[in-house]
Every structure is written in structure tokens, then in C-alpha cells.
Amino acid sequence: MFSEFFQFTFSGITLGAIYALVALGFTLIYNASHVINFAQGEFLMIGGMGTVVLMDAGVPIYFAIPLAIAMAGVAGILLHRLAIAPAKNADVVTLIIITIGASIFLRGLAQVFWGKEYHALPNFSATESISLGGATLLTQSLWILGIAAVLVTALGLFFTRTALGKALLATSMNKDAASLMGIKTSAILMMAFGISAVIGAAAGVIVAPITLTSYDIGIMLGLKGFIAAAIGGLGSSTGAILGGLLLGLAEAYTAGYISSDYKDAVPFVIILAILFFLPNGLLGSRAVERV
């Protein structure tokens, strides 16, 4: 009875940790520009698939991972320079649509050049799972949670303690005023895309031992990550983690206690309920409409 409950909880934590890490990637670009970057899932894919492709080419895993993450960073900067920056006067919805286009483009490139096969990455720890109270937990889930915690702390410090982070927040609050204060808003945005891509790619590498990786892995993970970010409140790093874990646990408990057939309906019910009662998510900042 209890071991069953533990197992469902561990399943939920595994799922939730993955969603949370993906959700984190959305916060930076959102904070800088209020754009929801739907190509975030593709950065994950570049991280995971890039590592696989480099390893196939004979690069040892210790070099393949940073190389793949750097590759995603470059892709993020290029995405900003080539697709977002030229449309700088467009409104947010147009920019969001541009990111959807970019995600389809990146997925297409990966499909043509890297193939359509699924690949697995090795676990980070030698022991694959640990046993607790009659249930098993993947050690990789702990890695994911740990790295997510480090990222949240780092992002928090970045926004509150560094001039760059403050410049980024200023840009998001009022672009014109920030620009008048001497902040290079275009460079700030480019940096936000680059760092988001790096966070996304790192997430893609860390979750790959559990989720496997392929050219289209970004669709599902990106969408679930976005739901997690929306539940937690877009723009809040802690909210992203909370939203991810909530979503993962809800899915696992539904599959375990009700029926696996209804599992996929859960995220949508949760997001409807939360957006109805808390339109800004659990930890989102209250929007102030200026008239």
C-alpha cells in the first residue's frame, strides 16, 4: 500500500523534475521580452541530439556535452539575430509566432541532418536506481532536481545581484526607458536568447538518459514545460519548479490511482483551473494594466 504510494510519488518526481527543468528555460526570455519562446523545446533537442551525434563522431562524452550546449547557445543567438531582431517593432504575439516558425525549421534541419532515430544517453551515475521503502527512484531524477535547484539559485542571483540581470529586468519593464538609461536593449535580448538556449540544451542532455532523445523530442517536452511554467507563473523560476513538480505528480497519481487512460487530460484540467482562479499562475507577478 505504502510502497505503491511511494512508487507513484517517485514516478511523479521523475516526470516533474523533467518538466520543471524545461519550464526554467522559458523564464529568461519571458522576463526579457514577454515573448514565450516556443523554440525552447528545440534547444533541448539540440542539446540531446547534438551530444549523441558528436559521440557517434568519436568525441568523448565530457567534450560532447559542452560542445552540444555551446552549439545550442549559438543557435539561440542566431535565432535572435536572424528572426527576432529584424522584427523588432512587431508586437509580442507576432514574435511568438516567429518562434513557432523557428521551432519547425530547427526540427526540420535536425530531421534531415541528424536522422529520425531515437537515441539513448548513458546515466550520469553508475547506479541506475535506488530503493526506498519498497519503491525505486532513478538516480538521474536526483541529478535533474539538483541541477534545477542550482539553476534556480543562479538565476535568482543573476536577476537581483548583477547589473546585467537588472538591465534585463529593466528592459522587460520598459524598453524605451531602459534604452534611455543607456542599456543596449538589443544586446540584452540577444543574451537572453543565448542563455535560455544554453539552459534548454543542458536540460536536454540531463533528461535524455530517461526520456531518450530524437529530432522531435522538443514538441512534447516543450509543451509540457510550457504548461508547467504557466502553472507556476510565467517568469518565476521557483514557480517553474513548483509547476513542473505539481504537473508530474498529478500525472503519476492519475495514472496510478484512477486510470492511465485519463492521465493526459490532467495537465489540461489543471491549467484550466489555475488560469481561471489565478490568471498569473501560482507565483506569477500580478500584472498592472496602465491605462
Binding site: E4, Q7, F8, F10, S11, G12, T14, L15, I18, A135, T136, V207, I210, T211, L212, I219, M220, L221, A252, Y253, A255, G256, S260
Partner: peptide, 12 residues
């Protein structure tokens, strides 16, 4: 088919 974890179902 796109799920990344099925331990809940297997436990059941």
C-alpha cells in the same frame, strides 16, 4: 506513445 515514464502503470 510520447510518454517518458510508465512506472505508475507497471506498478499497478
Amino acid at each position: 506513445p510520447k510518454d517518458t515514464d510508465t512506472t505508475a502503470q507497471l506498478t499497478r
